[in-house]
Design a protein around this nucleic acid. Sequence first.
DNA 1: AATGAATGAGGTTTCATTCAT
DNA 2: TATGAATGAAACCTCATTCAT
Lengths: 203, 203, 203, 203
Amino acid sequence: MPAAPRPHNAGPSAAPKNRAAILSAARTLFAQQGYHVPLNAIAKAAGVGQGVLYRHFPHRIDLALAVFDDNFAELEAIAAAQSGQDCFDVLWRRLVTFTVESTAFIDMVIQTHPELPETLGEDRLARIIAEPLARAQGAGLADPSWQVSDVLLFIHMVHGVVIGQADPDHAAPAVQRALELIDPRLTGNGDGSFLRRSQLADR
Amino acid sequence: MPAAPRPHNAGPSAAPKNRAAILSAARTLFAQQGYHVPLNAIAKAAGVGQGVLYRHFPHRIDLALAVFDDNFAELEAIAAAQSGQDCFDVLWRRLVTFTVESTAFIDMVIQTHPELPETLGEDRLARIIAEPLARAQGAGLADPSWQVSDVLLFIHMVHGVVIGQADPDHAAPAVQRALELIDPRLTGNGDGSFLRRSQLADR
Amino acid sequence: MPAAPRPHNAGPSAAPKNRAAILSAARTLFAQQGYHVPLNAIAKAAGVGQGVLYRHFPHRIDLALAVFDDNFAELEAIAAAQSGQDCFDVLWRRLVTFTVESTAFIDMVIQTHPELPETLGEDRLARIIAEPLARAQGAGLADPSWQVSDVLLFIHMVHGVVIGQADPDHAAPAVQRALELIDPRLTGNGDGSFLRRSQLADR
Amino acid sequence: MPAAPRPHNAGPSAAPKNRAAILSAARTLFAQQGYHVPLNAIAKAAGVGQGVLYRHFPHRIDLALAVFDDNFAELEAIAAAQSGQDCFDVLWRRLVTFTVESTAFIDMVIQTHPELPETLGEDRLARIIAEPLARAQGAGLADPSWQVSDVLLFIHMVHGVVIGQADPDHAAPAVQRALELIDPRLTGNGDGSFLRRSQLADR
DNA sequence: AATGAATGAGGTTTCATTCAT
DNA sequence: TATGAATGAAACCTCATTCAT
């Protein structure tokens, strides 16, 4: 029944490029339109056919997890590269940035897939943070009463603040103020430079 | 050709009852299944036809706002009834409870309708809170640096914490801990009794 | 997101008519193109939207069973109306006709839904046949060794013969010859008048 | 830009081995899942790429016909090797076995490709059977009125009986009873040993 | 010659919205 | 005024087929 007259086909060697293009498109569209953005919109934005998307990511959640995975890899690289006292600060600032970027769909992922317990990354995140947090506490750069799980709570709070802003451009200042209210040490160097929503389209 | 099957029609007097039934069903289903629950599921749960739902609430957002409206009315009643120093505390605790209950769809509403500026109720909420907050600050029961808008941020943080819990039963203790981290005065009398997710189905 | 500008809507009173139209279209298309004919082809042939088809028959199998049900109802009416010795003969001939008509998809139904044990109708058919068969055997019009289950086997044989014909127009004579080979009493009055494939479109 | 991942390529000498592997996989999967099993499932089961499958069998029907061809070759070998009176019996029993094995897709082949007249093998089968049938009739081992085409009808009847059984394990006894009803001489030595469905996976 | 990724048509299914009764 | 069937756009997903390597 089907008949494909003349498609263009870049060949298998395009696979890694396609996968990266899909991830990038997904990151953008998830952030812009939320977790339930039509998958064919992602395929189109990535410049691939729908089948390719399904080959790489059989389910929507696989795509979401892959986006997360990218973030985690970067955080792990930071943790491995920085052994000083301010490692926690660098991690924390990047983490906030990721949360601001991805915040539009994190809750959707959670809500739609309550079966994923900590798989979504809390465990992995905890492992990344533990050491740098201890070092920062030792150096007086972080409250000594904070547990690793408290840092995760902070992230959730940031998440809540971002999605609570009707205008994405208000997200960064709102997060800045929220962190001040919680603890000034969480605001980093205070330049308020958390990525704004409009900057996240291409990374 | 076939005879009409004769639907029952309770007449115009049933309109208020229907509206209430729809609101109750919407509150339940929004909480259980999220903001994007099919509208005909709400109509069916309310025991009305789909057309009635449309008559009362032409758009999904109207339904969501009406659900909020109930909450606001209760808060306004509290503010009107309590003129003492601890009015803010009572309001705050009720507000946290509402946030825990409704948390599954607040972000959806915001995300899906970014055009609604403060319509969603931030203004209305600010008006309710302003006076009681000032009284509490005067009595040393609240941090004097807090703005009304900061209280709204706190609410968003609570929201973020709740949706960050994979297990709804963890929501109440997580919120408790989060409020401790922000400011112990926000935990109320400390009994940690914020409504758990499973209680919110019918109110 | 969806927007329906101006569809025409015949209203609920069209429901029974629509249901009948869908059944008729399904009967035709199942016979012509097999069980896996696209459902939207059935909807189009019936002159209804796709949603209507789903409202009446949520799954493909429901449609198939409804088509069968029509046949069974007719057979039961025959069994109830005819109390004479030749009731079995009438029933058998109608049964063969139905088998010839529906034969293109019976096996598909079986293969696709092996979970439906005899639900598909063998039990119901057995109940219809038992009495008339006994009467016919008493009158010497049927082999006394035949069990009810053997009659079902005969039907399956007929089914096999029909689907074995590349040209549908050969089905009737092939069935005629096959019944002769099994037992001449099964050929009825011998006029070979089993419905040909091309006649079954509108009944 | 990325280096080609270097697939293994056994060279031209692997072609016959691949063809055999595809045929074996097709035989198995057709029997297990029916004629419309996805072609890439066959390729994967055969351990070859999809392109190889297409090189050997451009269309699904080619694959089906090749599977039949194996069966025919075996029948022709039997006919060539056995010159006695019971050759027909041996052929018939093997034929019934093949029918039981392949029954899940015979009708699909016929239905989907009504343009293939006798290509599917009826002619070839007729040529194989004619002589042995005549010898058996001469020796009183077969009904003298049977035409070669009648034997084909019998095969179709067997086919119908097998696909009519919801439980594959019922197929062999049902076929046994059906052959008894048609003519006891068709049941062979009566040991009822027609291959059961579960035995056909690897031959 | 073999691989397996890419393509995209087309099937399935859902659901917001309309409207005859 | 209430009902709920009808509509059809649009989402989801599969798989036959092509083709760069």
